[in-house]
């Protein structure tokens, strides 16, 4: 529950497009709380959501999420 999630560069990608967290949440169909938790590495998204994020930013999942294992 309290472990840190995977690192990701969603915040950077979002900033490049000048989107707010609310904009991104709307695009993904999730709440702004979800976007915030994912950006801060507090929550790892499900595979479907990770792929949705990757498609939205036109990148691969591996380019967005960094495996620390």
């Amino acid at each position: 529950m309290f472990e840190l999630g995977m690192k990701n560069n969603i915040r950077v990608l979002r900033a490049e497009r000048r989107w707010t967290q609310a904009d991104l949440a709307k695009e993904l169909g999730v709440s702004r709380n979800s976007v915030n938790a994912i950006e801060n590495g507090k929550y790892d998204p499900s595979l479907p959501l990770a792929f949705k994020i990757a498609r939205l930013f036109e990148q691969t999942v591996e380019e967005i999420f960094e495996d620390e294992g």
Partner: peptide, 12 residues
Amino acid sequence: GSDELQSASIRY
């Protein structure tokens, strides 16, 4: 629920 974070919190 459309929001998976919310669903996860309820399951927890």
